[in-house]
Design a binder for these strands. Structure first.
Lengths: 208, 208, 208, 208
DNA sequence: ACGTGCGGGACACCCCGTTAGT
DNA sequence: ACTAACGGGGTGTCCCGCACGT
């Protein structure tokens, strides 16, 4: 029995519209920034109208908040946090995640657009408290998860006990921000790969 | 003979106006971003009019280019490159520069606004080739100077010969980007300081 | 048997909804004008939705008509017409009504919002025939009732026979409009009270 | 020598544009109210663009303020204050002004649109302090000029000394508001004429 | 070299009304 | 009887850039 045979209920269609707007807004803000992003383009890409957008979101700002909460947050979880969460060898998992995502973005061409979270952070964090709090929450979660994973690795004897988990986690996250930023402005990809290589080397050097 | 007694020549006054516009534009774009920045606010802050602005600059874009070339570039040189250029102990000079500038920005409050170059890079590099090339030039110069300094340190026996200068320089620059980015979104400064501490530790660990 | 024990019938609940919308619309238009009034705010204040509003009223215009017919009209009757209708001494009743309502509005703070009927009259009478007819009906009724009362007073020998009832009624009603209008724009209440005093003096001077 | 042969200077053309906008705005707000008035219609009627409007006025609100200050204020002076200012017989001058303007508005058809000042007062005074202060200034000036004229008439022995100038002036001004308001909502002009007649009778009855 | 008037267009906001559905 | 998704348009705001003038 295919699900496509049953007509969608009203609230399903509504959620689909909301989702289309959200996805389109994510891409629009990813590519043009939040301030430079145009709601006209969002609704055009989503195939709806301003009325629908305004019905689902109170305004551009709230749409931006929703993008952070409902698109970027889950993306962060699935790409960067989940793989490390239960890893047997956390530093190795970090290295693997780094390499995998750098490679994926280089292949897909996304690398020139940078990291969606970092883009919004750089642009909006100083200008708007709502963005700043949401973005800081995500980065704080990222750092604390990595710090916890590193501490686990230290207790398991996999990483030198001289490592301070919080500081290293902060550096790893900051490096990720910087590496994707490096990719954006660089005409070629070598600087991005070089910095990534150095981070991975550093992480490998920490093994007990 | 005081210099104030000689009336400024025509072109001196013109240059003064140009400079005021350039400074105001730097601050405007630093605080609001390039796309979010308003030329009206720029000329208001510079105490001139749009006519003067368009006389000295062909448009908003060219004004932005001039900000990169004539304000941000020299800033980068004086703050990050000159101190390392002739240093006897390059890694130590890098550490000192890191600590000094982090501290200065924390004290002055600039830290919440991030790094002017990085801000523009994140926002405009993917959107405009003119920005991308100028910004990439600056970052490339930064990396190559640091790489040269590291190579010097290796040859002097101050740094382990296993270090690859280019990769490490790329990491150091990327870390700087990430650390200032971390500062922007963080409510408190601890993450910024933690990441900086980790970078400095790493640099110290590289001594031969 | 308390009335609260019987559950409300379907149409009773419907009427209750209609009434809540009507009340909310009256206040909305009173405070923001008809054109400036927002149906979204009306339904929000009434605790319902636009669907309910459009179920009970054909549109914004018809809602406005209903406010005139069902809220403002009865208000006019109970406040200004009923007290004069059966009064033994009509001019005295007018004076009493004047003083009482001015005082009540000064106390309650309503004076700054003016007279609901006059507000709508000034705004909408020239723009919409439906409003104009309804509003004119109310004012015409007001004038004719006052004229009738004055004629009764003349026949009873209480008022000088030289008075023309229609003209005086027109003046009294116009004065009321002007006095409340005076209150609206005046920072202090003195002008409102002064004009009211002059009207009452005039009415008192007409006694036979 | 005809003046049309000299081309208008730049600032003359600018002032002409500003004036056209101001006149168009006056008519627009007179006919549609301030909130209901459309800047699109204003610029269309003025034959300019939004850019020009925004150059001369900071926004809709400031445009409204300018209409009060630069159009309605002078109108009030020339129509209602100047004729009474130096009159030998103030009450007679008031009566003449009343009759003349009522007649003029009935002839021109303006009567259905009411009094421009009163319209704005009723609509905007409770909503915006800038309007309230400007409008109250005009009405206060009106009342004080009329009170001064009445006091002059009392001292000249033309008007009974029992009259309180301030109260009577407040009533006369309020009557004017009410009479024009009466005209707006009335299908026919009789009520307006009747109220005006009663006011004039009252003023005549005050002669010493 | 610089100031001003102005053009034309985009922007976010938010409105009122309708329709499909519960 | 009532709800919620949605359409489409109009609003004021404000921008960047030009052309003319001093």
């Amino acid at each position: 029995m295919s699900t496509s045979s049953v007509p969608p209920t009203r609230s399903e269609r509504a959620n689909a519209t909301r989702d289309r707007i959200l996805r389109a807004a994510f891409l629009e803000f990813y590519h043009h920034g939040f301030q430079g992003g145009s709601l006209n383009r969002v609704v055009a890409a989503a195939g709806t109208t301003k009325g629908a957008l305004f019905h689902h979101f109170a305004g551009k700002r709230e749409l931006g908040y929703a993008v952070v909460d409902e698109v970027i947050g889950p993306l962060l979880e699935s790409r960067w946090l989940d793989p490390i969460g239960g890893a047997a060898d956390p530093p190795r998992a970090m290295i693997d995640a780094f390499r995998a995502h750098v490679q994926a973005d280089l292949d897909s061409g996304h690398w020139i657009w940078g990291c969606p979270l970092n883009n919004l952070a750089q642009e909006m964090a100083p200008l708007d408290m709502g963005f700043r709090e949401r973005i800081d929450n995500l980065y704080a979660r990222w750092r604390s998860r990595y710090a916890a994973a590193l501490e686990r690795a230290i207790r398991a004897g996999r990483v030198r006990s001289s490592v301070e988990p919080e500081s290293l986690a902060a550096l790893v996250v900051a490096s990720q921000m910087g590496i994707w930023g490096t990719g954006k402005s660089g005409q070629d990809r070598s600087a991005m790969l070089a910095a990534m290589g150095a981070v991975c080397d550093y992480l490998e050097s920490l093994e007990a």
